[in-house]
């Protein structure tokens, strides 16, 4: 069964099993192994990708359900050799330890910022409520997102407040 979809800006037309999940196709067929599987049941969020602008567990979506859709994986964040501001902030804030939750965590945060460039801490926590991390206690991850938000605010806007 042929699956036509767009992953990270590139159109694909591939043969995929009807029982294959999106994560299987991304990892096995497209070789995009940045997306991780940590539980296979939507509890850990390591497999999070963005489908048409929304964060979704790629372990709980059938590959063929994404026909015609635009998918973004962690591999899409770096553009023309330049890291995404979230990636930079994760590095600068020490938000990465073992790195296994990182791709999913980044994609959840990215989806949040795409829809809401100015989230509160509460909204950040809720955006990653479905992303488990055993290394960091989330503290530095939340700080990293807060920093991106702070830096993305127009300087003039900041000035007005101060």
């Amino acid at each position: 069964m042929i699956l036509d979809f767009n992953v990270n800006g590139r159109d694909y037309s591939i043969e995929a099993d009807a029982r294959a999940r999106l994560i299987d196709v991304l990892r096995e067929d497209l070789g995009l192994t940045g997306t991780k599987e940590g539980c296979g049941e939507g509890e850990c969020g390591a497999c999070t990708v963005i489908i048409d602008g929304l964060a979704v567990n790629s372990c709980l979506v059938m590959a063929h359900q994404t026909r015609g859709k635009r998918i973004l994986t962690v591999e899409s964040l770096k553009q023309d050799g330049e890291l995404d501001s979230l990636q930079k902030s994760f590095i600068n804030n020490g938000a990465v330890q073992c790195g296994y939750c990182t791709p999913g965590m980044l994609m959840s945060c990215k989806a949040l910022l795409m829809r809401n460039p100015n989230p509160t801490e509460h909204e950040i926590r809720e955006a990653i409520e479905g992303n488990l991390c055993r290394c960091t206690g989330y503290v530095k991850i939340i700080n990293a997102v807060k920093e991106v938000v702070k830096e993305s605010k127009a300087p003039s806007e900041e000035d007005h407040h101060e």
């Binding site: 939507g42 964060a55 979704v56 709980l60 955006a127 990653i128 479905g130």
Partner: peptide, 9 residues
């Protein structure tokens, strides 16, 4: 219900 990701699907 569930997480952000679950509610999106």
């Amino acid at each position: 219900i569930g997480s952000t990701q679950i509610r999106n699907a």
